[in-house]
Design a protein around this nucleic acid. Structure first.
Lengths: 269, 269
DNA sequence: CTAATAGTGTCTGTGAGACATTATCCT
DNA sequence: AGGATAATGTCTCACAGACACTATTAG
């Protein structure tokens, strides 16, 4: 017990290259709403391992030359994949750290520690394929056959590489949870939005329909969630109905009281 | 733009030692309750950088030889510092990932990415000093002068090394929040505990007194939070009062309805 | 006895959810 | 006109918090 202890302290002052070679990457779970359904940004791998399978956009952290902070690296990966500039359209994307995945063997080539980030984006253009991978696309979550255990149903055509099904599952659960007690649903919307649009976000992320009337009243009752612009939409709903009032995101950072998911009957045991 | 892209893909299949040297460590924010006050496990650094300052217990992840998963590494660091075996007393400690800190320059020696873990422990013996550091101790949170911004008040004697004040602040906020909607307060207690003991945990972590009667009724009303053993304590309270009934942790993993902190008047804006 | 503590009872205000209703607009 | 939709109103049940109260024990 004494020897390895001393050895560790001894090595602490040394270049890690003399110790254990570990690589650090950043992966991004970028979510958006398209056609009232939740989508995730995926790239198709062009080479082994997992060639032909889909993966979260990501890459190595620039460690020494052009050293960058982790959120910077995540924003850079997202910008490279979407073709958007971090100053422009991506500046309105919410980015937060999701978790770090480092099980030995998760990358067959070497020991890789991956820091995952979660991004909430309003509707963005299709990614430009071929920049960093064989293909890239916004993929509807439902097409991935994710199970509660972080695996994919057998028979799902779009297979996810590495442990990315696990990471994506964790990201989805985080997103579902964050909508309950933060105003981040507005990050999926344009700068000005209607209450029914905001409701569509909740329905897409939670995967269940909400009562329009109660949702409306509740959103307006939470202080700082949304603030009215005084304007309305130009037209009514697709199939009729009055024009909806427009709102901006308010200044609240926490929703109080929270908007709890209906499907909490089954209190996780 | 094309050249660095291709370069990165090219290097992806190579040993990271040829790319950018990055070290990965695990740090642990271990919390416990002592004398009705929240304490954190800290070690005093015996050598530069930050010699003489206090730090969270932690160390390098074993990457290739004896490759270990990240939670394993955290448990190992905790065991080394407390002198307890991971199979014995430490098996009842709750461990969860807190976040990853990787700003360039956070370690003056090299680029270090640190994965922080949060531990909730029942009362444990004093750490054995000298094993891994100049000193080690359970330190009351209040003695560290932490501010909301993750810094320490000027004049605080026990200074924290690296960005550990930030990490500790994040861990405390996570702990306060987790007590609201999970039954993890029981992780601070012995296997059998009383409702007043559980209340003492909440009061220590939240830093405010709770109404004994309402707390009691509320805990019992949450399904699966605690289950009665049928027994009571041998003696009443220190200064009188009836014997308290004993409870075990229940099977709930989420509290519903949640126990919200009183001090949410100031809804974070 | 006295003080402190465990545990229960009661009341009130708030909010969530079910449901109904009105007003507006598209086709 | 007819149907869909935005927004508001009403009712009921659950729960949080304030407060009062009883029972039990240490000193």
């Amino acid at each position: 017990m004494q020897v390895p202890e001393d050895e560790r302290r001894f090595l602490e002052g040394y270049d890690p290259r003399d110790y254990d070679p570990v690589a650090v990457t950043v992966d991004v779970v970028a979510l958006t709403i398209r056609d009232k359904a939740l989508h995730v940004l995926l790239v198709r791998r062009g080479r082994p391992p997992f060639a032909g399978m889909w993966a979260l956009p990501g890459g190595f952290v620039r460690g020494v030359r052009d050293a960058e902070d982790l959120p910077e690296a995540a924003a850079r990966e997202l910008a490279e994949e979407t073709g958007l500039s971090t100053e422009g359209a991506l500046s309105r994307v919410h980015l937060e750290q999701l978790g770090t995945y480092g099980a030995p063997g998760r990358d067959p080539r070497m020991r890789v520690i991956s820091v995952a980030y979660l991004a909430f984006a309003p509707e963005l253009p299709d990614p430009r394929a071929g920049s960093d991978a064989a293909d890239a696309a916004w993929v509807p979550i439902g097409a991935l056959g994710l199970t509660e255990t972080g695996d994919q149903l057998p028979g799902t055509t779009r297979r996810l590489a590495f442990d990315h099904a696990r990471i994506l599952s964790d990201g989805l659960e985080r997103a579902r949870s964050k909508l309950e007690y933060t105003p981040l649903a507005t990050a999926f919307c344009a700068p000005e939005f209607t209450i029914p649009e905001l409701r569509a976000v909740y329905e897409a992320v939670w995967g269940e329909e909400l009562h329009a009337g109660n949702f409306h009243r509740k959103v307006l009752s939470v202080p700082g969630f949304v603030e009215s612009t005084g304007e309305t939409t130009e037209r009514g709903g697709r199939r009729g109905g009055p024009r909806a009032r427009l709102y901006r995101a308010g200044d609240a950072r926490l929703l109080h009281p929270a908007l709890l998911r209906p499907s909490r009957e089954d209190d996780v045991r």
